[in-house]
Design a protein around this nucleic acid. Structure first.
Lengths: 339, 339
DNA sequence: TTGTAAGCGTTATCAG
DNA sequence: CTGATAACGCTTACAA
């Protein structure tokens, strides 16, 4: 028969032991920890003393299981390496940590099957809320999310059919606006550099096409170049343009890194920017302001998206009324020397 | 025939219901889920069918509580915005996800008190392991970690007194090596651009001083410039050098972003690099190879650090023998056109 | 304000 | 290979 011992090697201190040392019941310890105001000051102090004396660490696993309330939020990003997501993650953390929530992170690689697996894993952890930086999901994923009855925020675009809540901007509208901006500046042969296998880049390309249509121009396939990720992709774009459509006078890049890569390649070749070729970026990084010339870019409210998303999630978790479920935070064109 | 729905409104399906539908006990369901090989194929199939028919989602909270085994790893980074950490996070994720582990992320801002709070929060979640990208911790934090008996990896430097396991490189040794490299190239008045409040940058500065000493040179305080973070900091460094020590012939930057900022500022001013001023970076980013001229840099095995750390963590979690507890992955000097 | 009893949903253990 | 039973450590609901 197992002997009940008060001191368990390596296994950690239990609430019960804190209670004993403080001379109260487990419930009082629990309350002192979760709702300090509901315990008389003197008792509370005794409890806290016992906690620190024993080095007690509250078990949130047990708490979550018992209370059916988790304090973990799951974040699914297309890529963990992309620095633009860092701003969003940071914003989430800034709001969530002070509220006592932890962040769980995973990568979907923009693959619906992979995203589905990650969502399943997060639901298994009983996350209190979920943030998806994508708007395309497998039917199974959508079914799981609806069935789980968990607050969900979609982030990467304005989805046609939201799962739950949305905080984003429209890739298509933003790309259209930038293309029109370039046209207004006088550029008449605008090229678009895109990334393959990236649904957001695809939307951006649609926006580019929308703009050309509105301008009464045909989309010239020679001016749509699909390149690989990274700075090297920007250089590829320049090479392709020179080869296929050398009379191009402006290049709109689907991503910030691409734009910088393209600019640096122009620098290297001695092409005048914007004289020989204007460059514009879909996304704004600090770097955009520091290269020579500084790059015209779409400024997207990355930090604000994270903040608002986190706030809406918390509101839902705490059953507060939500005035809106879908927020379009828009974008801003920052005109700089590259165009 | 209507699909059998759970009797509990959004609360989720329990293992018990799966067991009933499959005509087995809960234990068999549990085994089928956790150790499929321990259940007869036919039964296993019945269980899986029941699972998908009911949309059952395994409750890892309950599993962890009951088994005292968590499948979450906590990662504490100095900053969530710094892109160099993205590589590490990615590497962790690549190893941990296939092994069935989730990643929990938090920011310490290089503040021991904040780190302590984050560690406490992670321990409360009963993480299976912890990764700290820092080597300076509050005494209380160290006490908690030792008491918790959790595998810990330290990452950002080679610590004097490791808590548990270490996978890193030595900031001091690397900085010394780069400084000596610049000297060997003929630069005799090398400046160092540092970041305030960054313990790793402080170590790097010590390495810089070590090298000068070895070269028989005095450390000239005019050549040690402390600047703010970001590309702007690089520009500040150039301005300070011009003002305080205009005869400086090489600038070693404590960070990648700083180095790029400095180079771009030189470009802007028309300073020849490396003719007027050579530039070297402590850290290598893809960007380093693309700017003009490409920047000489220390290549640190960021991805390898993440991979090895994750592997060692898993080894410890699964009680496998660990040949070593401390790994110095070293560094590499990549000589490019900027020096 | 504090305590008691009964779970929360799973797994360890041991018996069959 | 499968099942019964007792934990895992905490909180809810209610009683005092």
């Amino acid at each position: 028969m197992p002997v009940k011992t008060s001191s368990r090697g390596g296994g950690g201190v239990r609430m019960h032991e804190v209670a004993e040392l403080a001379g109260v019941s487990r419930m009082t310890v629990s309350r002192a920890l979760n709702h300090p105001e509901k315990v008389k000051e003197k008792v509370r102090q005794r409890v806290f003393d016992a906690v620190s004396q024993l080095g007690y660490v509250h078990n949130h696993l047990a708490r979550s299981l018992s209370s059916s309330k988790s304090n973990v939020i799951g974040l699914v990003l297309p890529s963990l390496e992309n620095s633009i997501f860092a701003q969003t993650v940071k914003a989430f953390s800034d709001v969530l940590r002070p509220a006592g929530f932890q962040l769980m992170l995973a990568e979907s690689t923009d693959d619906p099957k992979e995203e589905e697996a990650v969502i399943a894993a997060f639901l298994a952890q009983r996350v209190a809320g979920l943030v998806l930086h994508s708007t395309r999901h497998s039917p199974a994923a959508i079914r799981m999310l609806r069935g789980a009855n968990v607050p969900v925020i979609e982030n990467g675009d304005m989805p046609v059919e939201p799962i739950d809540m949305v905080v984003s901007y429209s890739n298509r509208a933003a790309a259209k606006a930038m293309t029109l901006h370039l046209a207004r500046l006088g550029y008449g042969r605008i090229a678009f550099a895109s990334l393959a296998d990236n649904p957001r880049a695809t939307e951006r390309q649609l926006g580019y096409a929308d703009a050309l249509k509105e301008l009464g121009q045909e989309v010239d396939p020679r001016r749509i170049v699909s390149v690989s990720r990274g700075f090297g992709g920007g250089a590829e774009a320049i090479a392709q343009i020179e080869r296929l459509a050398p009379d191009t006078d402006a290049l709109f890049c689907a991503g910030d890194v691409l734009a910088v890569g393209a600019l640096l390649e122009c620098n290297r070749r001695g092409w005048d920017v914007p004289g020989r070729l204007a460059i514009a970026s879909f996304d704004d990084l600090e770097l955009m302001r520091h290269v020579n010339p500084a790059i015209t870019a779409l400024r997207l409210p990355r930090h604000e998206i994270g903040r608002r998303s986190a706030e809406m999630l918390l509101a839902r978790i705490f059953d507060r009324d939500l005035p809106v479920r879908s927020v379009d935070l828009g974008f801003e064109i920052v005109q700089r020397a590259s165009s």
